[in-house]
């Protein structure tokens, strides 16, 4: 039976650079083009070592009188001939070689809980990402136009829409760079898709809260709802970007995203309290007006309104007592 042997070429930090199946034994490894395994290392001789098998089917490495010698990594010593077992590491020049038999044991297969492929397929396909970005551009431009009362409204809102998409691109670009540094891939379109999705959700949430505020002026807390949605979207974005960039598990990702989001929420709350310098001239009333047919607007009578305003006295008294 022919013995199948693999040579793994590792860099100085033991990361796998190349895996070569030896077509025959003996095989010569060196820098020369006549070698069976060519090493791109200036400290390696043209024919540096030979891998061979003897009659007892034992595998050997032999130094071919190389300049820098053959080293047994486990012994940290130069040798002229070394018996190889599957997994033995030798150093030639500045390259480490790991010699493996085809029967070398491997680790058990991991169950894939991240399902990146799934997320990509369903949510983060490149095509979907581009579509969401285009939708974001269109929505921001349209709502910018509808929220603008200048004569040059169209030009201004197109510019504003493009600026927002530019900002999303820069954001996605930063994540892509991080992605490239960590896992040799940019994933730019996916990062952009994530960012655009977040922006669209935020826009929808602010529109919804404006309408709710107009239709239900007595109900408070739409701004809190808005802020909560913004934080959740931020946390989810962070999760998504990290999912693409790192190989961390779901649990770690959720924890990291939640921790960062909570920290940001805390900072915002703190800054709001720190800047709590109440103005005595601002009128904090809800001034949202929407073009809705009057029949669709639910109203109360003036008397009911005056009665509802009765609580203001107590509120003002309480504020006066507080300070």
């Amino acid at each position: 039976m022919t013995r199948i042997v693999y040579v793994e070429v590792l860099d100085e930090r033991s990361r796998l650079k190349e895996r070569v199946k030896l077509e025959r034994l003996p095989s010569v490894i060196g820098r020369g083009y006549d070698s069976d395994v060519i090493l791109d290392d200036p400290y390696v001789s043209p024919s540096h070592l030979r891998i061979l098998v003897d009659e007892q089917d034992t595998l050997w490495a032999e130094d071919l009188e190389s300049l820098n010698g053959l080293h047994d990594v486990s012994q940290a010593a130069a040798v002229t001939r070394l018996q190889l077992r599957s997994g033995t590491r030798v150093k030639v020049g500045r390259t480490i070689l790991r010699i493996l038999d085809s029967g070398h044991p491997i680790a058990a297969t991991l169950a894939d809980t991240r399902a990146v492929g799934g997320v990509r397929r369903q949510l983060l396909s490149s095509r979907m990402s581009i579509a969401v970005t285009v939708v974001a551009l269109a929505l921001f431009t349209l709502l910018g136009f509808l929220g603008n009362h200048e004569k040059e409204g169209i030009a201004q809102s197109v510019t504003a829409g493009l600026l927002i998409v530019l900002a999303l691109t820069v954001w996605a670009g930063c994540w892509s760079l991080a992605n490239r540094l960590v896992s040799h891939r940019f994933n730019f379109v996916l990062h952009l898709g994530l960012a655009a999705t977040g922006a669209v959700i935020l826009l929808a949430s602010s529109q919804l809260s404006e309408w709710l505020d107009f239709l239900l002026p007595a109900a408070d807390g739409f701004s809190v709802m808005d802020a909560t949605v913004a934080l959740v979207v931020f946390g989810a974005q962070l999760y998504g970007h990290l999912l693409l960039v790192t190989a961390l598990t779901h649990q770690v990702l959720w924890r990291s995203a939640s921790a960062v989001t909570a920290a940001i929420a805390g900072l915002i709350v703190l800054s709001v309290y720190a800047a709590d310098d109440p103005s005595v001239s601002q009128l904090p009333f809800s001034a949202t007006l929407k073009p809705l047919h009057p029949r669709l607007v639910r109203t109360i009578s003036i008397d009911e309104f005056a009665a509802a305003a009765g609580g203001l006295k107590e509120r003002a008294d309480r504020v006066a007592r507080e300070k």
Partner: peptide, 24 residues
């Protein structure tokens, strides 16, 4: 004190209004 406000959509004999009253 800072102003405290109450806002409602109200109706009088002829019209619907968005009304706010603020007091300090």
């Amino acid at each position: 004190t800072p102003f405290e406000c109450e806002t409602r959509n109200v109706v009088n004999k002829r019209r619907k209004l968005r009304a706010a009253i603020c007091v300090r």
